[in-house]
Each structure stands twice: as C-alpha cells, then as structure tokens.
Design a protein around this nucleic acid. Structure first.
Lengths: 235, 235
DNA sequence: CTGCTTTCGCTACAGGTCGTAGCGTAACTG
DNA sequence: CAGTTACGCTACGACCTGTAGCGAAAGCAG
C-alpha cells in the first residue's frame, strides 16, 4: 500500500479531487483565510511541474499506449525526477485518471432545436474524442483497472463518468421544454432514465469504436438514433 | 516483437484457433487421417498441459485479476514449466484470449415466443457472465490491449465478439418468422442492423456492469428493452 | 539576513516480471 | 535401434516498480 502518505500531504486536492479519503478540497484560500491552516510553510510545489507531468502523460499515452507508459518515461519526458511523480500520485492509475479526465470536459450539449439533432451532435463529439489515440489507449485501460479496484472505479466515476451525465440531463430538459418528451413524473424514475440513456449511448459508441473497431459515420449515427427514438417521442 | 517465432511452429493451431494466420484448425485427427501431414514426428504436446494451463489462467484471473496474472504464476499453478507456456502462446494477451473465449460460448438464444422475452433472456445470461470475476478481470483488459494491437483486436473479434452476433441474427430471424419484425429488404442493410443492435446491447450492458458498476436487475432490463423496442416492432 | 520547512533532482537499491537460452531427459515414430 | 520433438529445470539480462537517502533550492517567519 504505497499510497498512504501522499493523501496526507496537504495539496493532493490540487488536481480537482480526492485520492483515497472521501474529502474533496477546493484550492482557493482554504478554511480560514489568514490562518492558512497547514499550508504554505516550506517550498511550494511547482505548478509547472504538474502541468508538464500531465501533458507528458497524455503524450506518452498517445504514443506508447497504456502498456508502454512508464513512470520513469513520463518523468524524464516532463523534465522531472521520478520521485516527484510519486510525491503527487501514488500510482500510474491515479495519474492517468487525472490526465484523461480533463479531455472529456470539452463535450457540450448544443441545443440545436430538436432532440435528434442534439443527440447527433453529442454522439459526433464523443466519437471524435474516442478516435484520439490517447483517449483510446487510456479509457479502456482505466475501466479495466477499475473492475479490480473499487476505489479507483469510484474515482473514475466521479472524475469522468458522472460529470458527463449532465449532457443527458440537459438534452432531456431541452426536449421536455420543446414538448418532444413527456415531463418527469417522479425524480427517482427520471434518474434511472438518465442512467439508462447514458449507459446506452456511451456504451454503444464505445463498443463500436473500441471493440468492434469500426468508425462512427453520420449514417451509422442516424441509424443508431432511429433505434433509440421510438418510445421517447411523445407526439 | 517477441511473438514472431512461435507462429512458425507447426502446432500453434492446436488450441482451437488461429494465432496470426487466418486458418482455424480443429484438433482431432487433422486433415487426412492416415497421412498426418507435418505432424506426429517427435514427442507430441501434452493435451493435458493445454487444459491445465487454460484452467489455471481462468482461476488466476478470477483471483488476482489481470494485473496479478503472471506467466510464472500460471505455469506453476498448472504444474508446468514457464517455457512450456511460451512454446504455445507468444504472450499473456494471446493466452487470455483463448482462456476467455470459451466462456462466451455458453450464451444461447432461447426462442421463447416473443422478441421481448428473447432479448430479456439473453441480456440476463450476458449479465450473469459479466458478473463472474474472471470475465470481469479479463474482458476490458483484453479490449484495452486490443486498441493498441490491431492483430490482437482481430483475434478478439474472431474468437469472442463476432461469434456472438449469431444471437442477434437468430433472435431477428425468429422475430421475423413470428411477424414481429419486417423481413429484410437487402442483405447489406440487414448486416448493418445486426451490427448496430449487437453494439448497442453488448455495449450498454458492459457499460452498466463494468463501468458504472451497477447490477443488471430485471427492472433495469425491462426499461432498457422499452427503450430499444420502439421502431422495431412492426404491428 | 537567518533559521525553518518543504520540495527538488539525483543516485542507488531490492523485488518482481518478462521472454530467451541452454541443458539433460522423456515420449513417440519408423 | 536412431531420430525428432516436447518437457522441466536453471540461469540470465533487461526492464519497471516504488522507496530511501542525500545535498541543494525555494519559499516564509522573525
């Protein structure tokens, strides 16, 4: 269990989330402003090193894939000592989660005036994302590790999966406002609906691209949406 | 690229499938019975060792997961020298493909009298399969490696993915015979339809179980099928 | 400016895995 | 019997992991 110390270090929360304890700390001025509880005593960590490491991780991932990604390799590529990596991330998995999570933030729900057009646009964005080498190499490898390590799976869900469910919620809300979808009856049922739709779209596109290895063409997207948009349309 | 030589050895085809050439040979008495073309000169390979290795692979996979699976570990567990593994499989990936492929052969299309019931049954079988530790540990890890190695991806498709499309074809044919689905207009379009349906069902269930980490309940299955069975039903 | 604290890069290390090579032996064929 | 091939064993070099110790650098408090 080599991951013990870094979570005790005060600034693990710098990269947006928890390591193993449940607490999430925002950066900013911590609890009391003047006090600076346990921060800012000695030499501060180099923010430039953080960025260089994450960039080097993404680049190496794209070139050599998951198996070729070595902590030593990333370190030398980032112009940083290997020990510096281990001071920030306890293992390769955690590093890659942080390096990859940001990629998915570029997905947006456009609101193009119809549910079909909205889904088509998001599927297209997602397909483009999955076509990139670093995403391809990282995503399934992360998911695979997640099946073994519940802690890691939780982190993946918090950092990558769950945030993207906003797309489904936004798309549903827009379609409901247009009258394309019925309004929600109860909240719990709506949540399950969101989960199902998300698993369906994400799972199908991932399976198509990453497993079957076939590209996402506009024609395919149309047929896929034909399959989905049966019982959902109200009129 | 250490995987070059073993494929030259004459009996790589012994384990049920191809290594890198496209040919698939069953074991049994090979092509001509008396002739034994290029086989049977020296000491034959132990079939018991093959089975022991594949069993040991599945067991180790279930216990230690992909990361914990070591060639040396598998060898000693199977009561076999490590070199014997490398004489048969060029790498861990290839070994695991063979060890896992057979698991999926147990899926069957039941023909229960309605399309909904058929899908429900197959989804249930698939969910049970994905709940097993060795499947969980292996499947995503294999897919992940496949994104890096086109050769391996082809093997995975041939050994694991494509064979299961029979389920979709059988289910569609049965539903068409019952009049639940329209008959196919042209063959190419039907093939694409099969691909889409397969990616959708497999991808969604995998995403639900392996990524979201939520169980497949009967209620979930019903809602998922509600989502699918819109435009497909003819009446 | 002088301590105090923490991070930095560097080197070295033990432990483990990979995949191969060489050896003597076992099994099977003609 | 000789010839051929697989077998188990041992050893090996190369690589990666994650940690430890060192001197130096970078901030902050007084």
């Amino acid at each position: 269990m080599p991951a013990a110390q870094p979570s005790a270090s005060p600034d693990d929360a710098v990269h947006s989330s928890t390591l193993r304890d449940g607490t999430v700390q925002l950066r900013a001025g911590s609890v009391q402003e003047g006090a600076n509880a346990s921060r800012a005593k000695g030499r501060p960590r180099s923010a430039a090193a953080d960025l260089a490491i994450l960039d080097a991780t993404r680049e190496t991932l794209a070139e050599l894939g998951w198996g070729g990604l070595t902590m030593g390799h990333v370190a030398s590529r980032a112009g940083v000592a290997k020990t510096t990596l281990y001071r920030r991330w306890p293992s390769k998995n955690e590093l890659v989660v942080d390096a990859v999570a940001s990629i998915f933030d570029e997905l947006v729900m456009p609101d193009l005036g119809s549910l079909r057009a909205d889904i088509e646009a998001v599927v297209g964005q997602f397909a483009d994302l999955l076509a990139r080498p670093e995403t391809q190499a990282a995503l399934l490898a992360l998911f695979a590790e997640g099946t073994r390590d519940p802690q890691l799976r939780r982190r993946i869900r918090e950092a990558i999966v769950d945030p993207q469910k906003r797309l489904v919620r936004q798309g549903r809300a827009a379609a409901q406002a247009r009258g394309e979808l019925e309004a929600d009856t109860d909240t719990a049922s709506a949540c399950e609906e969101v989960d199902i739709i998300f698993d369906t779209i994400a799972g199908t596109v991932e399976h198509r691209v990453l497993v079957s290895g076939e590209p996402i063409t506009p024609a395919w997207t149309r047929r896929f949406i034909d399959l989905l948009l049966g019982p959902l349309i109200v009129g």
